[in-house]
């Protein structure tokens, strides 16, 4: 009932036809510039960046730097924390390692969706979030990011840019409001 009432009022009142503007695009920059920019902005948003320069160096680096972290790139970790697993158990997650699909240079964000974690809470409930990212998978801005995503309709996906933060007390920046207190991107 409400549905029809709303739609009818809209039909009566809506604006004159105006065209939908064409896709907004910007010139793509060269990869090296994008990588540098990504690193720079990531620091500005409170993240820390490592560049191990090569996939062959990744696992060793991660094991050495984040000992004990739950590595969600591994099948056994997925099995340990399935979609229906208890919240209490998830809240015990200290550091987690995830793989991101691509990064965005202009804001230091990375894209992850349900194919990167077994349970949607994982990237948010962990105290420390470590994201592995292929350094060739960095696009310039959010236009290229969304054109890359297309209409992919995974149940849930997120751009993460830095650790969880708040400035609600007198505009003082505090890291770790509800989500990860520390945030790292390991480029390979």
């Amino acid at each position: 009932m409400d549905r029809n009432k709303i739609l009818q009022t809209i039909r009566k009142n809506k604006a004159q036809a105006a065209p939908l503007p064409k896709t907004f695009s910007t010139p793509e920059e060269e990869p090296k510039k994008l990588l540098d920019r990504f690193k720079e902005i990531l620091q500005q948003v409170g993240g820390e960046c490592f560049d191990v320069k090569g996939a062959e160096n990744l696992n060793l680096f991660v094991e050495e730097h984040f000992p004990g972290a739950k590595d969600f790139r591994k099948k056994e970790t997925w099995e340990k924390y399935p979609p229906g697993c208890g919240k209490e158990e998830l809240s015990q997650l200290g550091a987690v390692i995830l793989e991101a699909q691509f990064g965005v240079a202009e804001n230091g964000a990375v894209w992850m969706d349900e194919s990167n974690f077994p349970n949607r809470l994982v990237p948010f409930i962990a105290e420390k979030l470590v994201v592995c990212l292929d350094s060739e998978q960095i696009c310039g801005n959010m236009h290229t990011a969304y054109s890359r995503l297309g209409n992919r309709t995974n149940g849930f996906g997120v751009f993460v840019s830095g650790p969880s933060k708040t400035a609600d007390i007198e505009q003082n920046l505090v890291l770790g409001a509800h989500g990860a207190k520390e945030y790292f991107v390991v480029l390979f």
């Binding site: 948003v45 804001n107 840019s161 989500g179």
Partner: peptide
């Protein structure tokens, strides 16, 4: 979806002077 590219670039920059919010979450299915 591509319109999100326009709005996510504008929102946080205009609101708090950040390049984007820490989380931009897309909920599609339960």
């Amino acid at each position: 979806m591509e319109d999100l590219g326009v709005f996510t670039r504008l929102l946080a920059r205009s609101a708090t002077g950040q390049p984007v919010t820490a989380y931009t979450s897309h909920y599609l299915a339960p």
